[in-house]
Amino acid sequence: MKAPRFAYIRPESLDEVLELLAEHGEEARILAGGQSLMPTLNMRLSRPRLLIDINRIEELKGISFEDGTVRIGALARHAEVMDSPVVAEHLPMIAEAMPHVAHVAIRNRGTFGGSIALADPAAELPACAVALGAEFVLASARGRRSVAARSFFNGLYETERGDDELLIETRIPAIEPGYRSSFMELARRHGDFALAGVCCHAKVDGNVLSDVRLAFFGSEDRPRFADAASAAAEGKAWSDDVKDAVKEALGGDLDPIGNFHASAATRLHLARVLTGRAIDRMVAAG
């Protein structure tokens, strides 16, 4: 379990990173927290020619709030996000999700941007980003662009990011007055990849839900926004009947991929149970 040979470079500026990406493209990998990349290299599942270590790039760090938007730098460590008062105040869903992201040692090194860019379908943060309408800022030598979370994830470890692009930050609208979030996950053990996970976000007035946004992870090859289930709750007073309707509708949204930890049918069942519980809790939180 030793990595194959690779070249390593640790640039001091963003421009330098982007030049290297322009030159090496898919033969390069970005090294941020290394919590997924290093095991992949040691298992020889990936053989990049060059590792570009971005840990020295100051402008990729930090978490800030401005004009109703939270900016999370690509290098923000999970532990930093978990402890951030800005995140706790403006992104309660993310705050609720963070303890489910792996384990303490991994959260100390792993980065927010790394989790988004890797696009593991069982990961929490991509689904939160989808539910919350996040935008990802990509930079390359060609310039910058912003991609909505809902159109960023293309499949298993596949995203809209070009080989010469670097994810530099995530911009997430802060929670608005009257809105609530709820996050729930089931895993075999705490910190494992999810068997089922749901991110709920909605305006809650009494027990009436509107602007309902349900996103799921641990189900398919990418985080999935559940249009039908969200619509089934839209404008409704939360009740057992509505809960049943949402669970029923979810069958049209999700087409889970089974494996030996849980079959497709079990994953859909668990997603339904979690959805009911997550919305129960969100409504009750008032």
Binding site: M43, R188, R189, H190, G191, D192, F193, F260, H261
Partner: peptide, 16 residues
């Protein structure tokens, strides 16, 4: 063997 790593071969963890 389908689960020859600690990601998929699960052992008990202290917290549980």
């Amino acid at each position: 063997m389908l689960n020859a790593s600690f990601a998929d071969y699960l052992v008990p963890m202290a917290a549980g």
